[in-house]
Design a protein around this nucleic acid. Structure first.
Ligand code: MN
Ligand code: MN
Ligand code: MN
Ligand code: MN
Lengths: 218, 218
DNA sequence: TATATTTGTTAGTTCAAACAAACTTATTAC
DNA sequence: GTAATAAGTTTGTTTGAACTAACAAATATA
């Protein structure tokens, strides 16, 4: 069996690993706010369990089984978020903290039921893909709004960081998933952007924000 | 803060204490399937935290604060069971094990939302009362079916033990909360009972079962 | 009342999961 | 190419939550 704590480590590794699927002890330590010796020790344990490839002084990698388990935790997390928003009426900015706990519930039936009641959703309330029961993730090719050029018309498809503050800011600006917008201009010195949606007046977004908005191009 | 484990101890103490509100280390140990020295140690810890009155070789008692906390865990448990049955479509025999885990979620908003969506229910799916947000429990005066006499007409109001097996048996016999039934006769040597509901044929229930069915008299 | 049994407690051990201090290896700067 | 810095590891502690073995107190039994 896998503990609550181990699930959190796997999830973090999966979520923060680089393109080669690697992450260092140091990075993981920072993301989890857990000191390096503790992380190092846990990596040895997970390696014993066949979930992590561990070699001294080398970056860490998840094994295939580790990846699958991580994806299944992420599945539980995202299904929960979707359920809380769609069926219980929570705001998208409220659900992440609750899902951090519920993702550790050991009851396949519970999550299967959520999935069924939601009609087998593909994405969570922040636009992130929900892995299937086999741990497979369908990923879309999205572009950061920061990378778009003036005149581009794109659709808000996902938020790269689901912190309460950013999501509340987006509520305030009336920017939701599915909102179509056009880039009107970009201020070169600070990369702030003027954008326009069909329903609202033009508005300025700082680069800090545009870096976090993931857009779908047509 | 109170840990997952401590919540389980408080809940068990509250649920199994006698009329004077007392329970021995030994009894608690048996109910939790945790060895006596472990229970004894935990009682000292809870006493440090002001949740238990602990005196060597004397039976244990919850403090007022301990009682309130225990009732709030029970509230989370029962609200969850009700939610799983009413809003997610689980059977009443499936929900106890899931609620054992969800009762430890730390998020008042989550349980408040359940409560609201359910319309502030008074009882869980097994007929047990749901404590209010202040930890107060409204208890009804119910009688075990085993105590009823021939000719008595009573309503099934609660199940004393929500084990999966008993609940599945009741499903099979078409006995639900709210079912009205009349005692037709009692076999004196084994106390088995013949009962009759309005919808079904007469059926025999063993004393093992009638001891677990809590009835409302008119 | 004396003995046996049950119940409760203490002491010491284990394991998971965290930490700090000290040390080693790798990387970067000069 | 050496010195300084960063990253990774080892060792030893701490705390929570479990255990066993041994002992003490309370209760039941003869
Ligand atoms: Mn999330
Ligand atoms: Mn978590
Ligand atoms: Mn229950
Ligand atoms: Mn529990």
């Amino acid at each position: 069996m896998i503990s609550h704590t181990e699930e959190n480590y796997l999830k973090a590794m999966f979520g923060f690993m680089d393109e080669q699927g690697e992450i260092t002890v140091n990075e993981l330590s920072k993301h989890l706010s857990i000191k390096m010796p503790t992380v190092n020790g846990m990596m040895k344990r997970l390696s014993e369990k066949g979930l992590v490839h561990y070699e001294s002084y080398k970056p860490l990698k998840l094994t295939e089984e580790g990846k699958k388990l991580a994806a299944l935790v992420i599945r539980k997390h995202r299904l929960t978020e979707m359920y809380l928003v769609e069926k219980m009426g929570f705001g998208w900015e409220e659900v992440h903290i609750i899902a951090e706990q519920i993702e550790h519930i050991q009851s396949p039936e519970f999550f299967d039921k959520m999935d069924e009641l939601l009609g087998y959703p593909q994405h969570d309330p922040h636009g992130s893909p929900i892995p299937d029961k086999g741990g497979k993730i369908k990923s879309r090719k999205l572009v950061r709004l920061a990378e778009c050029a003036p005149e581009d018309t794109v659709i808000l498809a996902a938020i790269a960081d689901s912190s309460e503050e950013l999501l509340k800011f987006l509520n305030h600006r009336n920017l939701k998933l599915g909102t179509e917008l056009t880039v009107e201009s970009i201020e070169s010195f600070d990369k702030s952007m003027v954008i326009k949606t069909s329903t609202d007046k033009s508005q300025v977004l700082s680069n800090l924000v545009t870096e976090k908005l993931l857009m779908e191009k047509e």
